[in-house]
Amino acid sequence: MSGGVDSAVAAARAHEAGHEVTGIHLALSRNPKSYRTGARGCCTIEDANDARRAADVIGIPFYVWDLSDRFHTDVVEDFMDTYAAGQTPNPCLRCNERIKFAAVLDRALALGFDAVATGHYADVRTTPDGDVELHRAVDAAKDQSYVLGVLDEQQLRHSLFPLGDTPKPQVRAEAAARGLLVADKPDSHDICFVADGDSTGWLREKLGERAPNHGGEIRDETGEVLGHHEGTYGFTIGQRKGLRLGRPAPDGRPRYVLDIEPVSGTVTVGPREHLAVDRVEGDRVRWCGRALEPGTMLAGESVTVQLRAHGAEHRAVVRVAQERLEVDLIEHADGIAPGQAVVVYDGTRVVGSATITDTRRVSA
């Protein structure tokens, strides 16, 4: 129970369905004030109090589990290291993979619980053959199956998502009807451990001397130096704002970050059309259900990939290599960066995911 409306209603529904429910709030910050202040739905003392009040209204036991050290190592440190390597991480995927459905689930099973239920918008289904599948939620605008694409078959067998069949406005109305004070609490959209939403400033402060370079050049595709920067961690592929180049491109069009080289500190910029990619490759493959054998190819109208948490679906041909995925995009995508996740779908079903290591630009 994060302290938000979704997990509160999920707990209420599980309790009403006859399950023996215990509310768990995760203390993820060694010092809650150092991560975030204000009611944003994650990580603060206020959120813990909101979760406790919701548990009291529902009538279930409530505990706080301190996973701050594990969270710092597996999520925060991973976030910093990935940015320092010139890549763009998604900390929510890492949190789901290593904290909520690994550390929490392992502890829950050891204590005799059957499953972890959360307020994520997704749907777990069991086939007639007994296989488990992860599917998109009914509410496409709130669907969170992308950030759950790192869950494996065993984790899915012990996961419940009670809100997968309900649109978000209906969830808020239900919360109000149940007397839950979080019914109108705003959703959390920012990175929970970046207090003011300024990721670049946060990385500058935290990385310090750990950064592989403390500045470098901003160049165009011809190699001409256009400006200088304080560190590659302040950039991500596809970024337009904050480049501070001082002079416009010869054609007057905006420039975008095309490439980041953390060792030399070089950031390459160019026109938007040069962001288009038609192929991505990834490692750290995770299967949401039965694993696919190397050599398997997925193709057809129903096969798509999603490359951002709130991004569009792209039709694709997916090949399973040895511990890798190779994805050819039928419709190109813009601004895709190494470090992001590629999540593979067959219709509404999540097949699996991988961490993007390489992309191929259409212009190349």
Rank of each mutant, 00 (worst) to 15 (best):
E293G: 03
V132A: 05
V277K: 10
R255H: 07
G197W: 02
T200G: 14
T200N: 13
S353L: 01
Y345H: 10
D334Y: 08
V150Q: 12
V351P: 00
L151F: 06
R255Y: 04
E261T: 03
G208N: 07
G59F: 10
E301L: 14
H228R: 11
S34V: 09
Q306T: 13
T127N: 03
I218L: 05
H25W: 05
T73G: 12
G3V: 03
V267Q: 11
V350R: 01
D165F: 11
R324D: 11
H19E: 13
E174R: 02
R125N: 09
M297Q: 14
A141Q: 11
G311C: 05
V257E: 02
D56Q: 08
G295S: 07
I58C: 04
G197L: 01
G270D: 00
P91R: 02
F161R: 03
E153M: 04
Q144E: 15
V280N: 03
L180G: 02
E221T: 13
G112M: 15
D358Q: 14
L156I: 02
Y256H: 12
Y256R: 10
T82N: 06
T232L: 03
R360Y: 04
L156R: 04
P167K: 03
D81A: 15
E323N: 15
L181W: 13
Y63C: 12
G223Q: 08
L245D: 11
A117C: 09
D346E: 14
A333M: 03
C95I: 00
F113A: 14
A11T: 12
R52T: 08
I58W: 02
E261P: 00
R319F: 01
V150C: 13
V75Q: 03
A84P: 02
V351T: 06
V171H: 03
Q239T: 08
Y63K: 07
F193D: 00
C192I: 09
I191W: 01
A211H: 06
P248W: 12
L329V: 05
E133H: 08
V269I: 12
R36H: 11
V124E: 07
A173M: 09
V5F: 06
E209D: 15
L163V: 09
V225R: 05
G86A: 08
G282P: 00
C42G: 09
C42Y: 15
A102F: 10
H135D: 10
E77Y: 10
P128E: 00
E224H: 05
G265C: 05
G231S: 13
R70W: 13
G270N: 03
I45S: 13
D283S: 14
P294M: 14
D69M: 13
G295C: 04
A177I: 05
S353E: 05
H158K: 09
R136N: 11
V280P: 01
R240I: 10
T166C: 03
A55M: 05
V116C: 10
G295V: 09
D69A: 15
G252R: 11
S363E: 06
V285A: 13
I336W: 00
G18H: 10
G201T: 12
L28S: 02
F62W: 03
A276E: 02
V342P: 01
I58V: 15
E153S: 11
T268C: 06
